[in-house]
Amino acid sequence: MTHLLDIRKLCIDFQSASGLFRAVDSIDMHCDSGEILAIVGESGSGKSVAMLAMMGLLPWNAKISAERMLFDGHDLLGLNKRERRRIIGKDIGMIFQEPMSSLNPCFTVGFQIGESLRLHLGLKGARKRERSIALLRQVGIPAPETRLSAFPHQLSGGMCQRVMIAMVLASNPKLLIADEPTTALDVTIQAQILELLLSLQREKDMALILITHDMGVVAETAERVQVQYAGQKVEEQNVRSLFSAPRHPYTAALLASLPERARTRGKLPSIVGVVPGQFDRPPACLFAPRCAQAKSVCNENVRQQGAAHGHALCNFPLEYTK
């Protein structure tokens, strides 16, 4: 079976002042049409970098290598810039955390949506305008006719995010990547935007990759979840079992440290230490220095578990009795 998106052993290194820095460390990822995949992880876990690499949006000092990087049958690794642009702009859409800065402040909303319609579908004149209005209506913007001539700074953050979504929808993408789409928004607006994304995903049978650090958002929207830590994929499960039976000690500890899961007031269970940096990278399991279950073996090698244990990258995945 072929997946819509299929990535094997993706590695990304950054050249920095103090040598090479590995941001993404042999990550596997796949996603199918009509599926919602969530990638969770803390900052520095490489969750956005992997997606940006796929879109070809990384700066010059990034070195990308992968065993396989297929999207819809195209090999993204072998593409030159022009071919990549043709596929990526059209079939993959991406929305970002800061809706205000993702829109060009110099142009009206209508112009920006129109541009993406012109580029991808070749629409012009009245038909372009008509379609723009339809798109804005589709993402739930009231009075879309008048909003076309508005500038981004005249809209609120939530409205800007809706416009971004409308722009991405213009080309009918097969895959939508949402990089922290609601982090900058208020809770009540966040709920609106998530609902919109979900209904659009269902309607168009898109694949949706949701990058976030918010466990609550993951639990309420995703179907399959992939947990990343320090550039590695440490666990992958469907959402229900991830939250009821996390297999990797990191996932378990992360969930336990959520204030809403605390049994009592007082001390929250927290993970000691910090994410390893460029210089203190552990030899085998990257989580070993912070892990309560770690044994001496964990400093020598680390084993990838099977599907029964959530693909956990751990020698001693957590067991649960039924």
């Binding site: 609902e195 639990a219 809403e260």
Partner: peptide
């Protein structure tokens, strides 16, 4: 009700504004 939660048992009907 808009605050997302990881606990599927307490997930209630949402009052979306």
């Amino acid at each position: 009700s808009a605050t997302p939660t990881t606990d599927s048992r307490v997930r209630k009907k949402r009052l979306t504004l």
